[in-house]
Nucleic acid binder design. Sequence first.
DNA 1: ATCGTTCTCAACCATTTGGTTGACAGGCCT
DNA 2: AGGCCTGTCAACCAAATGGTTGAGAACGAT
Lengths: 130, 130
Amino acid sequence: MINQKVEEKDDDMADQLSRVFAALGDPTRRDIVARLAAQDATVGELAAPYDVSLQAVSKHLKVLEDAGLVTRTRDAQRRPCHLEAEVFNLMTKWIERYRSEAEERYQRLDAVLAQMQGRTIRSHDQGAAS
Amino acid sequence: MINQKVEEKDDDMADQLSRVFAALGDPTRRDIVARLAAQDATVGELAAPYDVSLQAVSKHLKVLEDAGLVTRTRDAQRRPCHLEAEVFNLMTKWIERYRSEAEERYQRLDAVLAQMQGRTIRSHDQGAAS
DNA sequence: ATCGTTCTCAACCATTTGGTTGACAGGCCT
DNA sequence: AGGCCTGTCAACCAAATGGTTGAGAACGAT
């Protein structure tokens, strides 16, 4: 029961990660997010600067919404879009995890090389100062 | 001259950001990156766990390489893949920039709401302690 | 020189993606 | 009620994506 829930959650998270990364893989969408970081905006306002149709921008917004990056509320015929900055944490956590893993590995490699150098085995350096 | 260079660089960076985000939008590729964070690996080693062809994994690696996330060296007929963790900084910088922007805005909103509450306008709170 | 291993390239296929246009729904304003 | 904004939905199209198989390049080993 609980395990199943956890698995589901993991799947959902993985899917959301995929959707979020994929969503930000498009320059127009990244630009939209950048502008929404400054302030909420309607579809029309967001679409104005780009030379694509309003419908295209509407689609981009749907992608961002599916990724959980933006939410839309109602205001008469307008649909103000709001950035959900919370989702950024998901990405940052993923990135940070593997960055640190890689970095620690790099540190260990450095240590090994230093040790080798100490034993004068050094095979690929041309001028070891110390 | 210099301006042109800068523009080029900006374009390249934007393109790379797009490529990096897009690359990580695929779960298989994200998994490959996760494994490469632990240690370098050959194409065959990387392909083993997945039930797709070696060629498919080779393509994934090309995508990751084009994004600057992995580099490949030679070792006889093998092509060891290495994670370039540096690229993570590019993403983190972008994310951090807009996250903080959005967060600051949120703080200001909070301040405004607090002020309104001070003036007893408060419309949507049930029990303000302070 | 030939063989086995490891991997890439090329051609092909199905699906997804990003864009278009046209129709129309929802909600203001006379 | 009719008109005007704002935005979505639907159908369609071209290009990109993720996968396949088959051929072959590069290299070590025998």
